[in-house]
Amino acid sequence: GSVVKEKKEKALIEVRPYVEYYNELKALVSKISSSVNDLEEAIVVLREEEKKASEPFKTDIRILLDFLES
């Protein structure tokens, strides 16, 4: 629970300088966080969101995924 939350919060802070739609990304992460149990599940849902998103938000999600998977 809290470790996953920390990882996601740290990821958002780390990617902030590189993303165009930070507030939207943060809102998406919050929405996903409330419906998943762990980081792996969150990553799966983020990948689905990435497929549906259009640029440049798609790239923002990709940047976040790269950080979460590192």
Rank of each mutant, 00 (worst) to 15 (best):
G1R: 03
G1W: 00
G1N: 13
S2A: 09
S2H: 10
S2E: 11
S2C: 14
S2W: 00
V3C: 15
V3Q: 10
V3D: 14
V4A: 12
V4F: 05
K5W: 04
K5Q: 14
K5P: 06
K5M: 14
E6I: 09
K7H: 13
K7R: 12
K7T: 13
K7W: 15
K8G: 15
K8L: 15
K8Y: 15
K10V: 10
A11E: 03
A11M: 07
A11F: 05
L12S: 01
L12F: 03
L12E: 01
L12C: 08
I13L: 08
I13W: 02
I13H: 08
I13Q: 14
I13N: 13
E14T: 07
E14C: 15
E14N: 07
E14G: 06
E14K: 07
V15G: 02
V15E: 04
R16Y: 15
R16H: 12
R16L: 15
P17K: 10
Y18S: 14
Y18F: 15
Y18Q: 15
Y18T: 14
Y18L: 15
Y18D: 15
V19N: 02
V19G: 03
V19H: 03
V19E: 10
V19S: 02
E20G: 03
E20C: 15
Y21M: 15
Y21Q: 09
Y22I: 04
Y22N: 02
N23H: 10
N23A: 13
N23Q: 14
E24A: 05
E24K: 07
E24R: 04
E24L: 06
L25G: 00
L25R: 00
K26H: 11
K26R: 07
K26D: 10
A27D: 14
A27C: 05
A27E: 14
A27Y: 06
L28G: 01
L28S: 01
V29P: 00
V29R: 00
V29D: 01
S30H: 13
S30Y: 10
K31G: 09
K31V: 12
K31D: 12
I32Q: 02
I32K: 02
I32Y: 02
I32V: 12
S33F: 15
S33P: 06
S33W: 15
S33C: 14
S34Y: 08
S34L: 12
S34N: 12
S35C: 06
S35R: 11
V36G: 05
N37Y: 07
N37F: 07
D38I: 09
D38Q: 06
D38N: 12
L39I: 09
L39R: 03
L39T: 09
L39N: 05
L39S: 05
E40I: 09
E40R: 09
E40G: 09
E40P: 09
E40T: 11
E41C: 05
E41G: 08
E41H: 09
E41D: 07
E41N: 06
E41P: 03
A42C: 14
A42K: 03
A42Y: 13
I43W: 06
I43C: 08
V44Y: 10
V44P: 07
V45G: 11
V45I: 11
V45C: 12
V45S: 12
V45M: 14
V45P: 03
V45L: 14
L46H: 00
L46R: 00
L46A: 01
R47D: 02
R47S: 08
R47N: 07
R47E: 08
E48C: 10
E48S: 11
E49D: 02
E49V: 05
E49T: 05
E49R: 02
E50C: 13
E50H: 12
E50I: 08
E50W: 13
K51E: 10
K51V: 09
K51Y: 10
K52L: 09
K52Y: 07
A53K: 03
A53F: 07
A53N: 07
A53P: 00
S54E: 13
S54W: 09
E55G: 09
E55I: 07
P56H: 05
P56V: 04
P56E: 06
F57S: 02
F57I: 03
F57Y: 05
K58D: 02
K58T: 03
K58F: 01
K58E: 01
T59V: 04
T59N: 14
D60M: 13
D60A: 11
D60T: 04
D60W: 12
D60H: 05
I61F: 01
I61L: 05
I61T: 00
I61W: 01
I61P: 00
R62F: 04
R62Y: 03
I63R: 03
I63H: 03
I63T: 08
I63K: 04
L64F: 15
L64P: 00
L64T: 02
L65F: 01
L65D: 00
L65V: 12
L65M: 06
L65E: 00
L65I: 12
D66V: 11
D66Q: 10
D66I: 10
F67N: 08
F67L: 06
L68M: 11
L68C: 12
L68H: 01
L68A: 02
S70T: 11
S70F: 09
S70N: 13
S70V: 10
